[in-house]
Design a protein around this nucleic acid. Sequence first.
DNA 1: TTAATCATGTAACACGTTACATGATTGC
DNA 2: GCAATCATGTAACGTGTTACATGATTAA
Lengths: 186, 186
Amino acid sequence: MSLKHGLLGLLNYGSMTGYELDKAFKDSLSFFWQAKNSQIYRELDAMERCGWLTSERVIQNQKPNKRVYSITDSGKEELTNWLSSPESDIADAMRIRSAFLMRVFFAGERSIDQSLEMLRTYREQCTESSKGMSAAQDIISEYGAVVGDDRKAEYWKLVALYGEVFYDASLNWADKAIALLEEMKR
Amino acid sequence: MSLKHGLLGLLNYGSMTGYELDKAFKDSLSFFWQAKNSQIYRELDAMERCGWLTSERVIQNQKPNKRVYSITDSGKEELTNWLSSPESDIADAMRIRSAFLMRVFFAGERSIDQSLEMLRTYREQCTESSKGMSAAQDIISEYGAVVGDDRKAEYWKLVALYGEVFYDASLNWADKAIALLEEMKR
DNA sequence: TTAATCATGTAACACGTTACATGATTGC
DNA sequence: GCAATCATGTAACGTGTTACATGATTAA
């Protein structure tokens, strides 16, 4: 149910259209959760039906009409309840799900050179992603200063810091893996 | 399509029933990919229909009858092709998907103490998981020695090493996060 | 006697992805 | 003239989860 709660969290900052939510999602939550607009619209529909949101149609001329969603008291309550019971998501965070690791697992079925190539590509991507997360923290700091909510910005930065730590660890692992395979070649 | 390829990889080691595949999956691939038996049976069905597998019914007395699956040449080809084009899974490995981080993102909506409690639970879980992955490497070493396939065992250990590195990095992040929140309280 | 192991599945639902449709306005 | 932005969605499909059903054998 994380998509629903992500949307609730964003709407708790202020009312928005589905289109704006999609963009807000991409600009903030997409570091750790991804969603397509088709799914967002579907979930908004379901959330409205269960009373967490209300929507009103706004007629615009020279632009397509839009539907503005607002969180209800029931929605705020749901958000609070969700934030108060993190157990299942902590358990979930202990699960790794990676098709890439499945390839490493079966790497014995092909040549060492092919595996090395894969690992080197992976390594490069980790480097880039780590840089991106490092940059994100600076952007969040600036943004936090502009909107004057340093406290919230600290949490946002923590999330980006997790990203950096994660990609750095993956990078270090890749280096070890590459070294091991090079050793195996001799 | 990772579940399909995981099953192909296991069947490439030798023919098995759905039940045995389920157990083999839990004992090896489940560190980085999870699947329920209901899904495994469904996928086996689909894979047989597309010619990657064949199955034969074995009648047993005093035990339920069983269906033994074997990989076909077409299935082996598919496995090889899959192993040769890892690009999309490398890209996928760069994506973080974590409901737990969503909670950290929205942690500004509740008390610091509540967040601290969540992070401490998370931290404990990381410690345990890291130990589990460390132990897994020893078990794999022994197992590799027994079955006499050290080369494959090296890759399996690499996967477990990734797990250890991942949980250790998460743990270090949690420590930083906890320190930051304790600072915020003052 | 109770739980675990062996062994197969079905049905329904939840969540995620891909592809498509519409159509005006604005900036390069 | 072409791409991007604004703004909404539908349809179909793919993947993952939950709950259930069956029924014999074996070990605690």
